[in-house]
Simulated scan of single mutants.
Amino acid sequence: MTDLLPLDPGVLPAGIRSRFVPGINGLRMHLLEAGHETPGRPAVLLLHGFPELAYSWRKVMVPLAAAGYHVIAPDQRGYGRTTGWDPDYDGDLAQFRFLNLLRDVLGLTFALGHRSVAAVVGHDFGASVAALAALARPDYFRSLVLMSAPFAGAPSIPFATADRGAAPVAAGPDIHAALAALPRPRKHYQWYYSGREADPDMWRAPQGVHAFLRAYYHFKSADWAGNRPFRLAGWTAAELAKMPTYYIMDRDEGMAATVAREMPTPAEIAACGWLTEAELAVYSGEYARTGFQGGLQWYRCRTSGRFDAELEVFSGKTIDIPSAFVAGRSDWGIYQKPGAIEEMREQVCSRMLGCHLVEGAGHWVQQEQAGEVTRLLLDFLGRGGG
């Protein structure tokens, strides 16, 4: 599929170009960039999440470039027009482990001629890659902004165990069995996304990919009136079940059926200024071609725990570069792992310059409230971030 062309300039704001860079860790990487006309600018790297694309950053790229930055937003491994990754559920999962995803973006910025990156900004699952960048190469990635997904630290190596004897640590309760045993049986979306059925359920959704994504984006945005998040008391089935069904799904339903129930009306779609039908068509066109399995492989790497051991080399390590956190006030993502936002703010990020909850935004904060997110990013960069 190396014959893919750049995105049509007609779908991009003026000042953003679409291009490919081959030979990046086995990939031909597609990226959007702004501020590329002037060599020597400091780089800002923008990393998208699921189910998103480099295109998700279109509303903040030009203002950042106008402030003097070379703004780089790649389609990450498994997404969009980046090719060279294995789309097979039974293929090589190791290529999607997080250290390799970091290698992808490090290789890309090296190829573009940057000896450092002023700020790495990650949204949703992109925040995991951005946080790992800050842990592994703080000399290269000079500041960090996490969006919508708090980072509570690397997997931990057991500590002070030498004198406890050889007794194994007792396993905790099975959260999946507990969710399934609720009066309304439920399941966790990340483990659903890790299963074989998730990609065909969404890619071949009865309503079509375009309508599926419209409902999915609506359901997790501030436009859906039910998004009024609050802190959960703990990682228990009863507490997790307080979240909407896009996170804690009904046990016997897939995601296509889950979001179809919340499909916005034609009037609501017409009123959605942050994601017009033409803009949504860019997403649906890409996912109709690729399917979702590439992004779903990231979930499998996380839920399987298969690659945790290599991340344990960062156990107990703090993020000591200037950092900030931005999320929509209507985003349940900040509370889906109880205690994570507090751990990030109070223990993991030693130079946290601010945690911001943006009014009028749900999970897609940089699209729903692009102006305020741009202001926060520029303020952060001006105060020492980058």
Rank of each mutant, 00 (worst) to 15 (best):
P6A: 09
D8L: 09
P13Y: 08
G15V: 07
P22S: 11
M29W: 01
E33V: 10
T38G: 06
P39F: 08
A54P: 12
Y55F: 15
V60F: 09
P63Q: 09
L64K: 00
P74R: 01
G78P: 01
Y79W: 12
G80N: 10
R81L: 15
G91I: 07
F96W: 02
D104Y: 03
A133P: 00
A134R: 00
Y140I: 10
F141K: 00
S143R: 03
S143P: 02
S143D: 12
F151A: 00
F151Q: 02
P158L: 12
A167Y: 00
D174C: 02
L179I: 09
A181S: 14
L182Y: 11
Q190W: 14
Q190K: 14
W224Q: 11
W224P: 04
G234W: 11
T245G: 05
D250N: 12
I269H: 04
A270D: 14
C272E: 07
G294S: 06
C301W: 06
R302Q: 13
R306A: 15
E312L: 01
D320Q: 11
I321V: 15
G328W: 02
S330I: 01
D331V: 12
A340V: 06
I341R: 04
E346S: 12
R351I: 03
G354R: 07
G362I: 11
E368P: 04
Q369T: 11
A370L: 10
G371L: 08
